[in-house]
Design a protein around this nucleic acid. Structure first.
Lengths: 346, 346
DNA sequence: TTGAAAGCGGTACCAT
DNA sequence: ATGGTACCGCTTTCAA
């Protein structure tokens, strides 16, 4: 077994070129206090011998490891994996790398992850809150310690920093309006925990569209799944209760990926015809809505772009010498993709 | 802005306890050359003040950063994200972390990723080959440099190390046999590039089942998608040509996730009834086969378990003082999940 | 059992 | 413009 990192070091270059380590160090970083001639010598030698600065040494000195900690709900989730993909695309070319941790919607794990990430001395954090999270104390602590954070998707206003969200209000507004335009009047909404910022926003868009048409919001038509549908029964009983109502809803707007898929499965089992008996619009980044029968109308979040935007903002934050005067709240549009499941019934 | 890592150092402990740094270092790592009394003093103080060894310093010294490089095809892919999840579950509790890179089925990126990962001084590599990869030279180089590698899913025999695969032969064998048992006789197979090890294996299982029943393998029924279906036209033209054949196939066995989904979309567009006109069995880790109509029969890879197994083997390799005498080839069973798309026609 | 000191590979201050 | 040197935090001889 040879050397693990076969790259040469500054010392090697210095010896080969009869220079001091300090000079070589400055030369490779293109310092102004080094003559053009030596820079050339050094950099040519460095390139020829594939010099790569030792990351660990740099990190130890500079206290930054070119790494970014990410907290997501779960990897095998369409939305999050697309977000991750977006983040990866920017960290890849900016030479950072992401350390992924999953909250699995548990505060407990979220806290452990945070601790793990700060221990790994990440340069910054990209976080989407777990659906359980109430107190922001652990994030506040990290933030006060000087770790830049950018929140995405499930954000909080309690910490002053950049945020990247999709236009939740606009999304459900468009979805609800679309249903109304197609003649549906008794539109139900199945959503996650009411604590969640995004749930409240999505609810707001839904209500807005109804009110605009002078249709009163019926609380019976709004079902909360406090565990975001992790609990399968939650969704099942929500649907059950909706179907008991008289008059029964003629459409459902589902607020998340998991809820949407689960809802479809349940309705299928019950043999309810879509959209004839019940129209469906799903807030979902489901990968193949067009192979469903009927094809599913979705409100799709710009997950990839959100990941990119969040990573870009974070890196800007990390590399800024001075903290910014103003924080951005980037709102990316959600896209309504109309398919068969919500069309007007004949 | 305070200190980024607010954790105390060995020096702090040493000063507080009037000991030398060396002694403290040994004490926290429970060295035998330290008296029980000092160990106790040190560890109590350390715990009370939340001492966490500085990872960068350790890495610089020990040349290991408790990190594992992963090369996958793409994050937003059901199979890979499930694999990733499995890997994460073991690295999480073993206190490693994974650095994820995507090959996107390009050798070029695969090579860049490898370079990036070795630069980051990962302790080991978990890799699934890109579908383009022919030469193993870049991996050989890394391996000879002493970096442990475990291959999963798309493996190679050219490098002597552990492998984790699913039972591809058994999977397609079961799928094909199931179709035969249900009365289908003209079974087509749409697969990826014939270069790929897993394609060849899956083909083998398919052929095996046919031969067992004395049914000749018809080469017209076997379609290769050299780009693994990245190219959508590839699949479309494969299906097109199958439908032209006389006699026309009465069933299709699709060899990958992407091919399966794409095939379903195309058949749907063409209005071909499944399974009446054409039965389908998909080698796929699609997340919700039960919400399709008809529900999709799948051969599902144990992706999560594969990820776990690969990570466990790698960590064992990393932490072994001596290289193992024998390398394992772990074969995990693929599971045939029978649903409506392949049932016997009336 | 304990500790002094060298060194991992860089960076940056301060001389020269 | 160049170089000596201290230091980041930890590990590991080697001496005491």
């Amino acid at each position: 077994m040879k050397n693990k990192n076969d790259s040469i070091t500054l010392k090697d270059i210095a010896e080969a070129l009869q220079l001091s380590i300090a000079t070589v160090s400055k030369a490779v970083r293109d310092s102004h206090e080094i003559s053009a001639a030596t820079k050339k010598r050094v950099n040519e030698y460095a390139k020829k011998n594939r010099y790569r600065p030792n990351l660990m040494a740099q990190s130890l000195r500079n206290k930054n490891g070119r790494s970014i900690g990410v907290i997501i709900g779960a990897i095998p989730n369409n939305f999050f994996s697309q977000v991750l993909n977006g983040m990866e695309s920017v960290t890849y070319q900016k030479n950072y790398h992401i350390i992924i941790t999953q909250s699995l919607e548990s505060v407990k794990r979220e806290e452990k992850n945070l601790e793990h990430l700060t221990w790994r001395a990440v340069d910054g954090l990209l976080v989407s809150l777990s659906s359980e999270t109430q107190s922001m104390d652990h994030f506040k602590k990290a933030h006060e310690m000087g770790i830049p954070i950018v929140f995405y998707d499930r954000v909080t206003d309690e910490i002053k920093t950049h945020q990247v969200v999709s236009d939740n209000i606009g999304g459900t507004y468009a979805g609800t309006k679309h249903l109304l335009d197609n003649g549906y009047r008794r539109i139900a909404h199945i959503t996650s925990s009411p604590e969640l910022f995004i749930s409240r926003e999505r609810l707001k868009g839904y209500e807005l569209a109804l009110q605009e048409q002078g249709i009163p919001v019926n609380p019976d038509y709004i079902c909360y799944c406090n565990h975001g549908g992790k609990d399968l029964d939650e969704i099942e009983s929500a649907i059950e209760s909706l179907l008991q109502l008289k008059p029964r809803p003629d459409a459902i707007l589902t607020a998340s990926d998991r809820i949407t898929i689960r809802t479809l499965a349940i309705l299928k089992k019950k043999g309810i015809a879509i959209p004839r008996q019940l129209a469906i619009v799903g807030y979902s980044n489901f990968s193949a809505p067009e192979i469903l029968s009927p094809e599913l109308t979705t409100i799709k979040q710009p997950a990839y772009e959100m990941g990119r935007a969040a990573a870009e903002l974070l890196i800007k934050l990390i590399e800024a010498k001075r903290p910014p005067v103003k924080f951005e709240k980037k709102v990316l549009p959600a896209e309504l993709q109309v398919r068969e499941s919500s069309l007007r019934r004949k």
